[in-house]
Design a protein around this nucleic acid. Structure first.
Length: 458
RNA sequence: GUGGUUGUAGCUCAGUAGGUUAGAGCACUGGAUUGUGGUUCCAGGGGUCGUGGGUUCAAAUCCCAUCAUCCACCCCA
């Protein structure tokens, strides 16, 4: 019996009209990346699990899609291990590959593996899908595209500034109002150090990251649940309540964490970045947000997150500096910084705000009705000529199909012009061109038709 | 992994005091119109009511389980 076909949850099919819009996003982003001197690379959809595991924290490991080994993998699992029903341990025995979870870790692997062939600082962009075995929900998919730009092998803060410029330019081109939130892991570390809870930095940052979502009281609650001492929480309060301009906030934080060397370094980095931004006069709204934490634990310096101002959807771009991502693959002391544009969420934002320009649909410009073999012979050279002039056209492949069916086809596909050429047109050496919007039709020769179609094709 | 929601035609959904043959709109096919679409009218095809079990003379409807789905949490683009 025929079963209803379906696709895995959190995945999507894309119709031609959708692809035109998605490609608009990809093209725009790619164009900006190139403009700043970044070059494309691609890496495999699957990586060795050893490359992926342990890079995204405990949660991340759970969210990796794992690929079963080929062959009779089950027979190789020792009976006593099977009996433990320990999924994690058994997984190690039956799966050695996984789908990539992001583009940054595979990139680090790529850099380490090919270090001798690369020119540093290496600036690359990468636009490919990633997969996460997450529970899907609004704005969250299990397969989605990331558009990453990273520069690796340079610790200059100029790179951070450049990425901010890229963010500004991409979203200006896409016509989305955004706010770029920026913070620094060193400042967060300084805070943790100051309140005497340095080893709890992850718990602390994760908790205060939720400040604007769950409120101050709940954050404090979560902190004490995680075992942060009440005196430390007490000391944290003024930091959570910071306000004012970016430089005001920096000055305030500076007085609080003055004792922490790391923290002060972070403050200095932020000052430098902001001074560049001021000089460049970047119109983007850049906001220092000390509650911004970001989950990935490989960030060590600046961290970024971009939110759409007019749509509630979570962050649409995120990134930061990582000082030692390649260290785990055996190449220490190489610093990198990068950001990732979430194309699918950007799509959702643009769809909701109806920001897509109504340019080029995926459809042809001219449709030729097929009346029969004689007419085909007359039309094919004409169609060929039009195509060579850059006009996209198509002829209905089934000769003699009902007129109604053919017209309906053109209409459904949104093709603006239909050519009718039967006996009388052939005799006159002309073509009847019908404008599908106005319904009007006139007799033209090929060259006239070319001009008419071109003119309205903008 | 936790909590909730919803599963009826290809799609969106009606359909309970349980009761012959389960409906509508859209889509599809044919016709009114054998060279004219998008509007109209007529006709037609298409459903194991998610799956399995239970209650009952009788279940799309009530109960249980299971799967799927969507939403929220965790976390994240």
């Amino acid at each position: 019996m025929a079963q209803k076909p379906s696709i895995p949850k959190g995945t999507r099919d894309f119709f031609p009209e959708l692809m035109a819009r998605r490609n608009f996003i990809f093209d725009t982003i790619r164009e900006v990346f190139k403009l700043y001197g970044y070059q494309p690379i691609e890496t495999p959809a699957m990586e060795n699990l050893s490359t992926l595991m342990g890079k995204y924290g405990e949660e991340g490991d759970k969210l990796l899609f794992k690929i079963l080994n080929s062959g009779d993998f089950a027979s190789k699992v020792p009976d006593d291990l099977l009996a433990t029903k320990d999924s994690i341990k058994i997984t190690h025995k039956i799966s050695e590959k996984g789908l990539r979870y992001d583009l940054t870790v595979p990139f680090a692997r790529f850099v380490v593996q090919n270090r001798n062939e690369l020119v540093f600082p290496f600036k690359r962009y990468q636009i490919q899908p990633v997969w996460r075995a997450d529970r899907p929900q609004k704005g969250r998919y299990r397969e989605f595209y990331q558009c990453d730009v990273d520069v690796i092998g340079s610790d200059s803060l100029l790179n951070e500034v450049e990425l901010i410029q890229i963010v500004d330019e991409v979203y200006r081109k896409l016509n989305i109002n955004v706010t770029l939130k920026i913070n620094n892991r060193k400042i967060l570390a300084g805070i943790a150090e100051t309140i005497g809870e340095l080893d709890r930095i992850v718990d602390i940052t994760v908790a205060i990251d939720k400040l604007d979502k769950i409120g101050l009281d709940k954050v404090n609650e979560e902190l004490s649940d995680k075992g942060v001492s009440s005196s430390a929480i007490e000391k944290l309060q003024p930091i959570l309540a910071l306000s004012g301009t970016n430089s005001e906030k920096l000055s305030q934080i500076e007085t609080v964490i003055a004792e922490s060397e790391t923290g002060m370094k972070g403050v200095g980095e932020m000052r430098t970045i902001f001074s560049y931004i001021d000089k460049l006069n970047i119109p983007l709204n850049v906001e220092l947000d000390l509650t911004l934490a970001r989950g990935l634990n490989y960030y060590t310096g600046a961290i970024f997150e971009v939110k759409a101002n007019d749509v509630e959807i979570g962050s649409i771009t995120g990134g930061g500096r990582y000082d030692d991502l390649t260290g785990i693959f055996g190449l220490p002391n190489v610093s990198g910084v990068g950001i990732s544009f979430g194309a699918d969420r950007i799509f959702d934002v643009m769809a909701q705000l109806e920001l897509f320009p109504d340019e080029a649909s995926a459809a042809s410009t001219v449709f030729f009705v097929n009346f029969g073999e004689k007419e085909e012979a007359y039309l094919l050279p004409i169609i060929d000529k039009l195509r060579k002039n850059g006009i996209s056209c198509e002829i209905f492949p089934d000769s003699g199909a009902k007129m109604k069916k053919q017209m309906n086809y053109a209409n459904r596909k949104g093709i603006p012009y239909v050519v009718l050429a039967g006996e009388s047109e052939i005799e006159a050496g002309k073509l009847t061109l019908k404008n599908m919007e106005s319904g009007q039709q006139f007799l033209f020769d090929v060259d006239e038709l070319k001009e008419v179609v071109r003119k309205s094709d903008k």
